[in-house]
Design a protein around this nucleic acid. Sequence first.
DNA 1: CGGATTAGTCTTGTCATGCAACTTATGGCG
DNA 2: CGCCATAAGTTGCATGACAAGACTAATCCG
Lengths: 397, 397
Amino acid sequence: MANLRQASLRHANLALVARTVLGAGSPPSRAEVASTTSLTRSTVSRLVDELVAGGVLAEVGSVVGGPGRPGRPATPLVASTGRFAALGLQVGVGHLAARLVDLSGTVLAERHVVADLAGSRPGPALRRLRTLAAGVLGAVPAGCHVVGAGLALPGIVDADEGRLLRAPNLGWADVVPGPMLSAVLGGLGLRVGNEADLAAHAFAHPAPGRDSEPQDFVYLSGEVGIGGAIVVDGGVMAGRHGWAGEIGHVCVDPDGPACACGSTGCLEQYAGRLALLAAAGLDAATTPAEMVARVRDGDEKAQAAIRAAARALGVALAGVVNVLDIPTMVLGGHLAQVGELLAPEIEQILGRRVLSAAWVRPRVVVAPDDPAPGATGAALLALDDLVRDPAGVLGTS
Amino acid sequence: MANLRQASLRHANLALVARTVLGAGSPPSRAEVASTTSLTRSTVSRLVDELVAGGVLAEVGSVVGGPGRPGRPATPLVASTGRFAALGLQVGVGHLAARLVDLSGTVLAERHVVADLAGSRPGPALRRLRTLAAGVLGAVPAGCHVVGAGLALPGIVDADEGRLLRAPNLGWADVVPGPMLSAVLGGLGLRVGNEADLAAHAFAHPAPGRDSEPQDFVYLSGEVGIGGAIVVDGGVMAGRHGWAGEIGHVCVDPDGPACACGSTGCLEQYAGRLALLAAAGLDAATTPAEMVARVRDGDEKAQAAIRAAARALGVALAGVVNVLDIPTMVLGGHLAQVGELLAPEIEQILGRRVLSAAWVRPRVVVAPDDPAPGATGAALLALDDLVRDPAGVLGTS
DNA sequence: CGGATTAGTCTTGTCATGCAACTTATGGCG
DNA sequence: CGCCATAAGTTGCATGACAAGACTAATCCG
């Protein structure tokens, strides 16, 4: 709750103008920005000129003035491409990824490798990630400024200290990845976050400053276990210590099977990837696509496993919806790949178990197939800082 | 996301100064306010003068300047008493209440009646409430301006439309109380809210602009069923439609007893007041104090009922903690009255079932005994508007 | 070619804050 | 008792950000 001086005013309005342009469906003119922000045209003009000079925004060359529309044609404004970018990294249980995303949301460069890191040691894995990051950073175009870096990790993270506290599925505990990567990052400063939180951020924001359709939802990220994130009004709810969203360990049945976390009947024991495959009598290496095929072919054991998973998800999510009043669920990770099978049944259970279902029917959405949404989210998070305070990168701070 | 003009700047800084004074532990001087807000002394002086002239703040007559402390003595500032107030109303299943709370958090007037409203009709009940409100408003001191009114209701509420959608324990559905009370309220405008949400607000804020210790917690409000509220950073999380916090209908055991809401195994079926008494083999009219006495006297059935309730609460709350990372639980309503019995056992279960318990041990707090905290919360909510934008009540808007 | 229309720029005025000097009120010390 | 140090609060001036409205630019249409 800092005080406000005149400069803050300018900063806030710069951010407002930047967000308005970035978030608009089609490139808006200065005049349009003025009318949507209810700033005057003169003020918007001045702020836009600064943002264009600073490389945050750009004027589209092609001037728009269709027939039947008199008057001076507008100069459409867009996020500038390839001027500011951020590095997004991800360590998954089955892969490593690095991405460079720019202010317009374009992926400028990308590296992705499959790697089985279950039970691995952090050092070698982070060295491999460092190589990926170096490759991506080598592809930075001339004149492009990398403003930040983020790392998505599948576990409980202390964001303030940049520390991974515990990642059961990797077998890692108490790891601080920043120093290991700093040789490649230079002075960039690495922001560490939970994979589900960052994937959820990417789902809510296809590009910096832009909002996608559901702005309030619960995101489920399945890789080996099940992670989750709560998104309210486009922002990820971090919780008191940044550990919110551990939906995988919500209790579905107190008398259920024991979980590695020490509790019993956790959701993960029913709908985690390994639990799902085991219940279907399949090998741990079976791909989700194959599982889907078996269910469609009438494999009764696989069908029962899907039904059990959907039931567990329905019970757990109904509790979440009752508590949070967020009636949209997004299935990501392995849950996305079998999402078409799960969604109808989950929706039916939610309809029965959610108190407010009579007014607003909960719905289940399947996330797009992306092997590393956490990397994108990590990059977007760093770029969001720029959007929130564009004055920081302008000459006059 | 409105734009900022110079006036907004002044409004924001007025609010900042007002909050700083109201939220301070001991009455601060202008100079202290300047240093905590990092505004300059001159700016603070000007803003404080305006707030004092407008009746929001007041200077304490007794000037403070102890020995061993040279320099001109400070002029302590406090919230002005009896100049601005708000009306808080509450309809419970067992009572009606009206309170008048002023900007310093002082209750200027109060009326409270016991009434069994289970299965009642809204009209007569609201007429009785109107009488209470009139009584309280009749006690408004001269020169005191009533700035708003709020109403706490035990059910699902549409705050924007001021409509009670459904209150199962009252037997009410689709009621709009505003018009019924407008004769007494004048042009005041009634804000309607969920009882648990407003009680939680009162717990988080003992007075307008003042924060009490836990600023992140889950509040449970037991009357007949169980309501709840999520408080994050001192603010009640409303959810997408304002219906968040229905913890009473979180599923504890999918194979458990049927609930009136249409689901099975809801928390309310284990820890609701009636369920608790039934499990203990006691009459529905038994008071919580009597129940506590029986447990302490060794009544095994009562002890078992408490244990079952604690177990259900533990399971449900563990899910909430895992999802939200809010490790503080506050027991209100009838749960507060048997809270001393429940708290230790709930804490133990949370310790086992919460993933992050190893780092931050969840704790259970018992709310102070107040028959109508929702009424206080409703009044505080209206006063918070004033604190958030004091310019509204000053001469120059 | 001129009028209508809309986009964008420029000039002037307003107003809230920062800055720094000033006034006020008190304690301490010779 | 009187002077000085110290801290609180006030006053006048400079800065800078935005609003208002006039002005210029570019296009369509008749």
